[in-house]
């Protein structure tokens, strides 16, 4: 067991990836959407990092863009990391991480349902809480229920 600090993790990552792909931001890493799968599998499969547990996936609507936030941790080394992926308002699509961590499955469906962010490669992407025929995505800031 060897717990790494955020600086060390960020150092390891930036030695491997270009700044356009991964950049540190307020104690977290901002990953470009197209590099997400690659970076995530590096994080999971490198023995030194070993991020085997995906704590949570969530998304935030910043009006200009969506941000999908991943919280990862390593059970063995007990260090953790926050990843952020940004996608523009008009093209809300990020790659799905279900192939790496099954734990993302229901959470990504939840984000798709409530926030309207799509996940490319998700095995069963459909509404989870709301019903077929519900209009809009309630957690978006511009949502109004019309009543």
């Amino acid at each position: 067991m060897q717990t790494l600090s955020f600086g060390e993790i960020a150092g390891l990552i930036s030695a491997k990836y270009a700044p356009e792909a991964v950049a540190p931001f307020q104690g977290s890493l901002v990953v470009g959407g197209e590099h997400l799968l690659e970076v995530a599998s590096y994080l999971r499969d490198t023995p030194q990092l070993d991020f085997d547990y995906l704590i949570s996936v969530t998304a935030v609507d910043y009006r200009s863009h969506f941000e999908v936030v991943y919280h990862l941790t390593s059970l063995q080394h007990s260090h953790s990391l926050v990843l952020r992926v940004r996608c523009p308002q008009n093209k809300p699509l990020v790659p799905s991480l279900v192939s790496l961590w099954r734990g993302a499955e229901l959470q990504e469906r939840e984000i798709f349902d409530l926030m309207g962010v799509g996940f490319a490669g998700h095995p069963n992407l459909k509404r989870i809480f709301l019903w077929d025929g519900f209009k809009g995505h309630p957690l978006r800031k511009d949502y109004s229920s019309g009543t």
Partner: peptide, 13 residues
């Protein structure tokens, strides 16, 4: 599953 969902959605609406 899709048929069932659509049917349920229509009922709710």
């Amino acid at each position: 599953a899709a048929e069932l969902d659509a049917h349920e959605g229509a009922l709710i609406e």
